[in-house]
Simulated assay, not measured.
Amino acid sequence: MKCIYFIAAILFLSGCTSSVNVHKGWSDIKYYRIDFSGHEIKKLPQGARLVKEQKDIAIGVLDSNGDTGEFVVSGHITENDYTVEPMWHFYDYSEGFTTTSFDGKVKPFTTYKITNKCQPNDTYTGVSDRQGRTILFATEKPCELEITFPREIHHGE
């Protein structure tokens, strides 16, 4: 009888795992950050590593097909249980922004420029996505980032 309980305990403690390979068709971005929201990463694909002091967040390099490679994580997950975001640089410290109008409404497809205040020549210029999100701008150490918006040109004025 004790043997049966012991086997059940081992099965319960080992838990189940899920595997995920995400395809992203980003044209000029090769780095990504993936957050499994509390599901511990058990196995990383080639070109990926855990973010410092995290067990459920990794950064990596997309392969030539635009795939992350296979992640194995604890528990059962669906597409709603993780997020994958494009990154500028392959560093642990990252921050992204959401572009909004003055009244706080999301403003998609807005041109922006992010500057690393620790290294002012390190900049990224892009356009926010349909949810107003910018790229995750990553730095080697904690640094202040500045976001600016190039002046829009109004024709006929």
Rank of each mutant, 00 (worst) to 15 (best):
T78L: 15
A8I: 03
D92Q: 03
P86S: 13
G96D: 11
G38W: 06
T110M: 14
D129S: 08
C3N: 06
T115Q: 09
D63I: 04
E70H: 03
S18A: 12
I77A: 09
P120G: 04
E85L: 09
M87T: 01
S101G: 03
S128E: 09
Y93H: 09
F109S: 08
E40Q: 07
N116Q: 06
K30Y: 13
D129V: 01
N65H: 05
Q54A: 15
H76S: 11
T148F: 12
Y91F: 14
H23E: 15
P142Q: 10
Q46G: 05
S37C: 07
E144Y: 07
K2R: 06
F6M: 07
A58T: 00
E70Q: 08
Q131V: 08
I10M: 14
C3S: 12
D56V: 03
H89A: 10
T125F: 13
Q131I: 02
D56W: 04
I135E: 12
G66D: 08
V72Y: 14
R49V: 08
L44H: 04
K105G: 01
F97K: 05
G96S: 13
K2W: 05
T115M: 11
K141F: 09
E40D: 12
V51E: 10
K55V: 09
G96F: 13
E144I: 06
Y112P: 01
L50H: 01
G69W: 11
W26P: 02
Q119N: 12
D56C: 03
Y31F: 15
E79Y: 03
P45I: 12
A8K: 01
A48G: 01
D122W: 00
A9I: 05
E40V: 03
T17R: 08
E152M: 08
E157Q: 06
N65M: 15
H154G: 01
Q46K: 09
V51C: 14
K117H: 06
Y112M: 05
E70I: 15
M87E: 07
K141D: 10
